[in-house]
Design a protein around this nucleic acid. Structure first.
Lengths: 349, 349
DNA sequence: TTGAAAGCGCTAACAT
DNA sequence: ATGTTAGCGCTTTCAA
């Protein structure tokens, strides 16, 4: 078998009659190399179809030229749109994006323990991951810059993060319904995955839904509408679960005339539940979602847009600044929300 | 500033009073090391919170412990579900998954030129990327195993691939409509992205839609139903485009009573077009999609399921076998399809 | 069972 | 402008 199927800087050096150091400089466009030798070196490199061994470069420079992203459930549209924003920044740089998907507790631990280290990546993005108390230590031990997107934690003002003002988003959605004349407004929330809420719920898992609910209450109270307990329900993320919840709520003696779901997927479940009961949307039931994922448009769902792509993009951009040592102080960016009115909401009959 | 914020094998060696070689052996559970020294070494490593520097290990062993995936538009649900399958295999191994997203011609070229090399990754998965003539050379030059998923190319029987029998899938969908009594059946196709079809269409870009259309024709001919030209239309992937196409088709003098769209996203566009014309689905128009993405379920869309997750999973599994040298001969796996009947299809009135 | 030493391919500081 | 050299952290062969 052949000794090696590729060429190194040394091969080029030999052929060009120079030393590896010079080749390295030529390849890096250093001004410290004669224009002719540089040309010659580049030509030879090209003929040899040379590409540098990134691993060697990484070891030598101490930089990995890779960033990691720790993310759960990236097939969820909202997550994958954020990821897309993150990827978009990197594809114009030399950085690789290594993705660590989290779906089990082990993977979660492994992610925080092994991934957040300088020996693997230059920086990490934590995307849509609720932070547990146990994570805080690991996070603090990380010897690389970390930016969190769609993830907040009361004890971590020390970290950079990109978040959304979910209280405001929830407020806007509810306000929209109130303005339409609704007062019987249900709220359907998702719940922190079991994965993220081990036996001791220490109050750290901070879901966006909670904030959205706070916004809901605020709008209700402001309008002097009592918040009814039977108009609140929560279940796992997923449209089937939400469908069940909505079906129950619509079966109440005095059912709501509008339902605000804390994400679009759940809103779709609500719409299905209404359909199942022979109710039409928005005539008999108004529905508002949250996220404005791509499917929301063809479902003609009124929803709260939160610039998912943009949040991922900004997260990585901040991360790159950190990696390149441009800034130091933690930065908390808040992405604005906007209510997108489509055809799933109307005044009550 | 501190010289280094982490510990190396040498630190452990010093403290344990042995040489780095021994530490390396101990860490790898080699039988060639005294049980007591091994224990001592492991204890020290643990106390020091040691984790090996993967980059160094990679350089030394010549393995990168990473695989790359080249993929376009990974926010598309069908693509991201495939990706999810790929990721699922890796998260139980020590392999990293680096993702190279392709959205421009440059990125496409860069992907094939730079990524497919042993110096970066141990193997690559090419996901849902039509292969151009120019790619063939680059692919052939790759010095690492490559597996293609949802990508075929007539000239590349040499490569491993996981594909779907789209002709059969298209046949099943059409047959279903015919069985329901339809004979005026439209077909809406997507078109290879401009990105993938530069000026010279050399016939190599092989879209799945074409196969699905072949299946459609086959079913029609078999049933003795003439294929009408005005019942065929194509446009870019995307529900808006499909909505436009369907609107036109439904405005024909003699409009179809059923439309088969070559993917779910376009099917959603068709449904919207019908709705826009005041037609209800399935009473006035039956709609069939393709892919069975998650949204298909809550849209209650009849569609052709093709085990997206599974295709990604199998792709990586084959890739890992190749990397570990278990098999050599190219393997062509065909994932079966299945028609999922939901509420978007019915007999014509 | 352990130590010594070479080497993976590249970079960068220093010397010339 | 170029050569020389040391070294990044780890693995692995060869000796002992």
């Amino acid at each position: 078998m052949p000794k090696k199927q590729y060429h190194t800087i040394r091969d080029i050096a030999r052929i060009a009659g120079v030393t590896p150091g010079t080749v390295s400089r030529a390849l890096h466009n250093s001004p410290l190399v004669n224009i002719d030798t540089k040309k010659r070196i580049l030509r030879i490199a090209d003929e040899l179809n040379y590409t540098p061994n990134l691993v060697a470069r990484r070891l030598s420079t101490g930089k990995t030229f890779a960033i990691g992203v720790i993310v759960p459930f990236f097939t969820r549209p909202s997550v994958s749109e954020r990821l897309d924003g993150a990827v978009s920044v990197l594809s114009n740089s030399h950085y690789d994006l290594v993705i660590h998907n989290v779906e089990t507790t082990e993977q979660r631990e492994a992610g925080f323990r092994d991934v957040l280290r300088r020996e693997r990546i230059d920086g990490a993005l934590i995307l849509s991951m609720p932070i547990l108390e146990a994570d805080v230590d690991l996070l603090a031990q990380a010897n690389i810059p970390v930016v969190m997107v769609d993830t907040k934690h009361p004890d971590l003002p020390l970290f950079d993060c990109v978040t959304v003002d979910d209280v405001d988003g929830g407020y806007k959605a509810t306000k929209h319904l109130i303005n339409l004349g609704h007062s019987k407004i249900g709220f359907i929330s998702d719940v922190t995955e079991r994965l993220f809420a081990p036996r001791s719920d220490n109050g750290y898992q901070f879901t966006s839904s909670r904030d959205r609910y706070t916004g809901y209450r605020k709008a209700m109270e402001e309008a002097g509408i009592p918040v009814r307990e039977e108009y609140f329900a929560k279940e796992q993320h997923g449209f089937r679960e939400a469908r069940g919840l909505a079906a129950q709520m619509l079966a109440l003696e005095d059912p709501p005339t509008a339902i605000f779901a804390s994400n679009d997927t759940q809103a779709f479940g609500v719409i299905q539940a209404a359909r199942g009961k022979g109710l039409s949307v928005p005539e008999d039931l108004s529905v508002v979602g949250y996220d404005d994922v791509q499917a929301a448009e063809f479902m003609e769902l009124t929803t709260v847009r939160q610039m998912l792509f943009e949040s991922g993009r900004q997260g990585v951009e901040i991360l790159m600044e950190k990696i390149n040592g441009k800034t130091n102080d933690p930065k908390h960016t808040i992405i604005p929300t906007e209510i997108i009115v489509r055809k799933s909401t109307a005044s009550p009959k």
